[in-house]
Nucleic acid binder design. Structure first.
Lengths: 143, 143
DNA sequence: AATAGTAATTGTGTAATGCAAATATAACTA
DNA sequence: TAGTTATATTTGCATTACACAATTACTATT
């Protein structure tokens, strides 16, 4: 076992711990009024305009059944509206509603506030580096 | 909204995404033969020798009911053994078995291999920095 | 003793996910 | 064009992981 393996092991352990803590209710599961899964989906919709179940599932590498249920939940809560796809009778598009947009902004702010507190002692350089490394890792996962 | 908020927002988003991806089966949920929760618990037991349900729950900030069920699952699989606490009739200790130790080592190796692949292009400095930042974040969460 | 506190378990409910089967519609092919 | 295959979505079912509340069996205190 090489010296560098220790870093990798530590990364694995810390990430696993982080995921556990985030899954555990208090930290990340729900912030603002939105569940994590709903937050992500609304976020994606706000960036992309409208998307169908397939596109949402692909964007997050989720099973379509999962994406379908989450989109239905968002619709039931009034965060999104379902529009028929004029070119494909099987498909539909989801679009953020005014209310969904509001909740998304609220939740973004709540989450920002949390990280402001949590990372208040971090230097700008460390924050930037953390973004960079997290992004790189996420992009790697996605391939 | 200040300039630095962008970093915090990005950190939040990337972390949320990471957690989602990890929760999603393929990446982190199960590696080697161990579920994430079992991996963490065995890991903790291997570092601390023996622990009771209360201590395990505290270590991970879990509800005791959750820790209790997970410990019971580990026992059922033969990864740990339950020993009565001689000083407290209510309590017991869990101790890694030979088999549990093996599975833990297997899983550690499997996870190490994964990160070796995943982060093969990362510099030593980046890896070290990532460990540092992740650890700092986790310690912050814990308080 | 009587009471209050604690370790653990069990019952119940929820969120998030996947796989498999079913449905409706589209696209392609012979 | 009729028949077949592929695709978008939904629904049924199962699993993992968690919390909260109630219960049990002890322990500690008064």
């Amino acid at each position: 076992m090489s010296m560098e393996d220790n870093d990798l092991k530590a990364i694995d352990y810390e990430l696993t711990l982080l995921v556990r803590r985030a899954t555990s209710a208090a930290i990340d599961k729900r912030l603002g009024n939105l569940e994590r899964s709903h937050y992500l989906m609304l976020y994606e919709l706000s960036r992309n305009g409208t998307m169908g179940v397939k596109a949402l599932a692909d964007a997050f590498h989720l099973d379509m059944s999962t994406a379908s249920r989450q989109a239905a939940a968002l619709e039931a809560k009034g965060y999104v509206e379902r529009l028929p796809d004029p070119e494909d009778g099987r498909a539909s598009f989801f679009q953020l509603t005014e209310y969904g947009e509001q909740e998304l902004q609220n939740t973004k702010q709540t989450r920002l506030d949390r990280f402001n507190k949590l990372l208040k002692d971090w230097s700008t350089e460390d924050r930037q580096k953390f973004v960079e490394l997290l992004s790189r890792l996420n992009r790697t996962f996605i391939d």
